[in-house]
Write a protein that binds this DNA or RNA. Sequence first.
DNA 1: ACAGCCATGTAACTCGTTACATGATTAC
DNA 2: GTAATCATGTAACGAGTTACATGGCTGT
Lengths: 191, 191
Amino acid sequence: VAARQPLTATGYALLGLLSFGSELTGYELKQWADGSLRFFYNAPAMSQVYAELGRLQAAGLVLARDREDGARTVRRYRLSARGRGELRRWLDTTPLEPPLLKHHLALRLFLGHLSDPDRLAELVAQQCRWCDEQLTDLRAVRSRLDDDPEERWGYARLVADWGLEYYGAERRSLDTLGGRLLAARADPPRR
Amino acid sequence: VAARQPLTATGYALLGLLSFGSELTGYELKQWADGSLRFFYNAPAMSQVYAELGRLQAAGLVLARDREDGARTVRRYRLSARGRGELRRWLDTTPLEPPLLKHHLALRLFLGHLSDPDRLAELVAQQCRWCDEQLTDLRAVRSRLDDDPEERWGYARLVADWGLEYYGAERRSLDTLGGRLLAARADPPRR
DNA sequence: ACAGCCATGTAACTCGTTACATGATTAC
DNA sequence: GTAATCATGTAACGAGTTACATGGCTGT
């Protein structure tokens, strides 16, 4: 894997996951990403995790260790001292980017004049179900964080609570939306 | 520009902007995107607008007309009948994707154990300013929509109101966050 | 005259994805 | 034995970006 310097935000995100202290395989790192990152920052595909790990290793930001496990060799990565330093430097000096949002439901509502109101209502209902799933998963994450009262999870708790607020607000907006769509159906629904 | 079939969501978004009836230049289309799309769906770069217009034209979904304007020729695009049909087909049949979010502030808070609490507070403050800007701009959009009571802006109003709720909720979350960060500073702030 | 906006693109590149390929281990 | 999960990658592609290049028009 070619070294890419400087790293992307996704690269730093993975490096950051390793900063919690565990020595992880690429596979496990992907699972961690799916259980935390995914709620606020698109989790990378499996193949990208391996690609980033290759880059991080080439840059000396992570250390790899191969362990024999029966007939196969499993490679685990841990954060290096340089990696920790580079991560701190990035957090301290890189300007904050605004959030990137692609809200497909909003796009479809924006083009609502081309759709059947029933279709729009169904899309809102779908989004509600998706949103409820996120909330369920996030509550599970949150309670697991409470079971383990270690200090290093302090900021993870903060972000989990933020996420609960975020998806809760999203959910309420959808209810408002559903109501207004229903009210609009009373008026002449021309297409 | 090579034809790409099927189009991406961004392509349909631009096609959708043309469905409001105006005949626009690439430049104007970009301005419309910056004034509407941008609040809920990342607005494409100028160069991509031209690329998409080329693809849309190649697929017969928009019609181009060149008009002489002094020494230069200005090309305007409008939605074709096929384009309108294709847009409807897409809206009716394509499954809704979940929203894509890359919330850089949340990522930095998640890695808060590697930062100085003052730095985190500053980042939250920055995000507050950005959020207030969005709200100001969106309120301006919303009041312009009210000045023009044409029916075709009905769904645009709906989405603008949704956006005001969305960014309003984001803003309130940031206040909560700021408060919790301050409270944490009372406790031992080790790094 | 000069800045700033209007207008149209091309080229190079990057990020990230899906699809493919392979094989070991574990649970039923 | 077979399905699911663990584990590690490669290859091809796609969507979108920044940087570059060009030039007319407009206001001061």
